[in-house]
């Protein structure tokens, strides 16, 4: 049996992450199936972004293991994990200062450049062709997020919502198998947010698997097929968004105890 026969694309097994005396992620297990949109939700400080950082290799796990397509990735460096086909965006938008919109997305295409750094330096005909192809890919991705007409502008001069869309285009540049979106709709109004939701569904329909950290419960019910709820770094509930929200533990985590609210 090859790994592509199983529905599981990505898996966390008993992952623990400690920062000094603080346990940010505690014995968390989670699976993401191929071709789905999976939500990772939880209150502020629940450890959602830490999980994303562990998956992409920016943090090392304290114990436990992370598997992508059946292969362990928790011992790999971030750029190796990216090369396996995991791409991400950032909660606070981390675009590169000084780069134009097109250059940002072109940087995202680095893995698929199809030529060596040296050939590119020499400017061989093949390297030039590949460079042009990457530029076209980048422009196509910008069209997809509706930013093609801003390609030449300095990305840092654009609005927050625009920067978020550029970041998604950049993350798609490597043609990943799995896309991690860390609060993609933060700071957006409802219309902008549903546009992102539409894009997410289009991407899923084209075969991409998406893991989405989201704060907004109503967006999760709208966008995600399955979800995992965590609090204090621990698993609280998993399943469909509906069953998760109906779970009394989840309601307590988000809204507090009813008894407290009534002042009893």
């Amino acid at each position: 049996m090859t790994s592509s026969d199983t529905p599981v694309l990505h898996e966390l097994r008993n992952v623990v992450k400690r920062f000094g005396g603080v346990t940010a992620v505690n014995d968390l297990s989670m699976t993401v199936n191929r071709g789905t949109v999976h939500g990772l939700i939880g209150p502020n400080g629940a450890g959602k972004t830490t999980v994303i950082n562990l998956i992409t290799g920016l943090f090392d796990v304290s114990s436990g293991s992370i598997l992508f397509q059946g292969q362990r990735t928790d011992t790999l460096e971030p750029h190796r994990i990216a090369a396996l086909g995991i791409s991400r965006t950032y909660q606070n938008v981390r675009l590169f200062s000084g780069m134009s919109v097109l250059e940002q997305v072109l940087t995202g295409c680095y893995l698929g450049r199809g030529t060596s750094l040296f050939a590119s330096f020499l400017g061989t005909p093949d390297a030039r062709r590949k460079w042009k192809a990457s530029r076209e890919t980048a422009m196509h991705l910008l069209e997809r997020v509706g930013m093609a007409d801003r390609a030449g502008e300095l990305a840092e001069t654009l609005s927050y919502g625009e920067q978020r869309r550029i970041e998604i285009a950049r993350a798609l540049g490597s043609d990943p198998k799995m896309l991690l979106l860390d609060e993609p709709t933060a700071g957006m109004n409802h219309a902008e947010a549903s546009e992102i939701g539409k894009l997410v569904h289009e991407l899923r329909d084209s075969g991409l698997t998406i893991l989405m950290v989201e704060h907004n419960i109503s967006l999760v019910t709208e966008f995600c097929e399955t979800c995992t709820v965590i609090n204090f770094g621990q698993l609280l509930a998993e399943g469909t968004p509906r069953t998760c929200i109906d779970n009394p533990d989840v309601q307590t985590a988000y809204f507090g105890k009813k008894r407290d609210a009534l002042g009893l």
Binding site: L58, R94, F96
Partner: peptide
């Protein structure tokens, strides 16, 4: 500009 972000792009 951002070595960590660059690394998640495969650099």
């Amino acid at each position: 500009e951002d070595a960590a972000a660059a690394s998640t792009m495969g650099v």
